[in-house]
Write a protein that binds this DNA or RNA. Structure first.
Lengths: 327, 327
DNA sequence: AGCTGGAGCCCTAACTTCGCA
DNA sequence: ATGCGAAGTTAGGGCTCCAGC
């Protein structure tokens, strides 16, 4: 590969001038700039990221840690973050954890650190991974959590609470007085926010909170919750994500209960498949790509001291066929 | 940060000895090795990846390009690849393309090249992205395609054809004589393999191929295909992925046809939700994590000249409730 | 065999020099 | 002289590799 000196020789300038042209320094005169740019093109010169990092002590690299199953939300968030980062000239180094308990987190963080990433973004952090992250010695770069910061972490999250309020209010507006929550796992920030919203909307409507059953985000856990929900006499169930709603729909169908005639069901996330559930799922749509971009905004704020990223749009209710007034 | 010289001083050896200990060189004597290891621990020394890359001209970094929607299969494959790569000491730099037509591919490849990645893995390459990849000038590192190589690319794929044969044979064994294919998009390697398997199994059973309708992997396209499939009188449909099967189930239900009584449906992939479709979907399970590991194996073979990775386990049929003998 | 020393990888940052109003 | 804009020069950054001892 050509080096910066080869380019300098070809353009008959010093290597420093080449460096200046590369970074768009305006103090380089037009004629020299031309010559350098042409030499770069002719030699197909690409600067070496390694040498740059070594000399400048900045790697222009961010670390991204993903956790758990490849669900739609986290995957979309990661993708949005990625695209935004590339657009801003960042390189993204990824570490996919296999263990939701975070057993492989130290190893992953070590790998990112030896890469000298300038910040780390954690997507879909389980409570265990959050805790493990706190244990990391010498956290000398910013960590940003997708899905809400706390415990001394920065974080960015969509307004889950507002989404949950919209979903629950939709049910009370339909006349439901026994509105259950099929919640996400305890200690997850996302799950807690959705639970808060559910409680708030019910309080506002003057309705006692219905039964609360906890799942683990999976369709299987949604199916497993069906019996308890039915026994508790819920006429409507707000599910903390679409997968659990799918499992619930499945189990209700099996037990002979009809949706929405016997029970109304609302999901959360609006995964692309939700419109094709049977019946089509009423759910809450979220803009994960925007969340990804916001994560990058927060990272840049922490790294370079930019301004606070603009607030994210609130999730919006998408009404389909799985909700109706109670009988 | 501590440098290798700091460690050398603390351990009273030369920096070169430290380097040897770090890479596990057996020519270092036990006492020195001890001293060095202790100094490393005490100083919390981590080698600088940038300096290493610069000096050794090897970055120990792989590029991964992902394309399109975050579907379960590709996401799982990416995750498996990632975990395997970290285990083998590779760093993975990721580029998520937003445009399935590959408009942002050159930019992504340029980013990876300036990072001096030693190989590039492309997950879920659309035909457009394959084509765009061929246009990349100076492809000086190996490119490995997940989902089958050709056009001068290396590739690793699960045996889609065998899976498709199993799915189709299951339907003919049940007595179906009019077995349709809800195919993936034209020109996708995966789609073609599944189509081949369908044809082969039908030929073997002495059954004329039923209608073939093409979708785009999405549930929406599966729903859109329902009418054409019904009009063609198919009693069974093999869908090239689970999402399209979901859309089909949904549309069939709406039009009053019952599954499996009126039509049998088989999917492909066995996404975690498939067991909770209504009815539970008979489908073909694939080990995406193994595919991810095999991708890494192929990369290492190309980079270091290792042995050919072992063959992947064949996909296996998972029979649930969406298939039955024709009436 | 077991260890040390120095050169070199490719850049950037800081300083220096040059030329001209 | 004075100052400033536009270039060049030098010194590392932290490691591996290749002689040497």
């Amino acid at each position: 590969m050509a080096t910066i000196f080869d380019v300098a020789r070809a353009a008959q300038v010093s290597h420093q001038t080449v460096s200046r042209v590369l970074k768009g320094d305006p103090t380089v005169g037009a004629p020299l700039r031309e010559r350098v740019e042409q030499a770069v093109r002719e030699l197909r010169y690409r600067p070496s990221a390694a040498a740059r990092a070594l000399a400048s002590r900045r790697t222009r690299t961010l670390g991204m840690i993903t956790v758990g199953q490849p669900y739609y939300g986290p995957s979309s968030t990661a993708q949005g973050f990625n695209a935004a980062a590339r657009g801003a000239g960042w390189d993204v180094s990824i570490e996919a954890l296999e263990d939701p308990d975070g057993a492989d987190l130290p190893e992953a963080v070590a790998a990112l650190r030896s890469r000298d990433v300038q910040a780390v973004v954690v997507v879909a952090p389980t409570p265990e991974v959050r805790a493990a992250t706190l244990q990391v010695p010498d956290r000398d770069v910013p960590f940003v959590m997708a899905g809400g910061g706390d415990d001394g972490f920065a974080g960015v999250a969509l307004d889950q609470r507002a989404g949950a309020v919209a979903a629950t209010r939709h049910l009370t507006d339909l006349g439901h007085r026994r509105v259950a929550l099929l919640a996400g796992p305890a200690h997850w920030a996302d799950a807690a926010d959705r639970e808060d919203g559910w409680r708030a909307a019910l309080a506002e409507a003057g309705v006692e909170p219905g039964p609360l059953v906890r799942g683990d985000w999976s369709a299987a856990s949604g199916a497993a919750a069906a019996e308890a929900l039915r026994d508790a006499g819920a006429t409507a169930v707000f599910c903390a994500n679409d997968q659990m709603a799918l499992g619930l729909l499945h189990a209700l169908h099996r037990s002979g209960l009809r949706v929405p005639e016997d029970v109304s069901v609302v999901g959360f996330d609006d995964i692309p498949e939700a419109a094709f559930f049977t019946p089509a799922l009423t759910t809450v749509g979220q803009d994960f790509a925007a969340l990804g971009r916001a994560l990058l905004g927060e990272v840049e704020r922490l790294v370079a001291g930019g301004e606070t990223p603009p607030a994210l749009a609130a999730p919006r209710l998408v009404v389909r066929d799985s909700t109706a007034p109670p009988r």
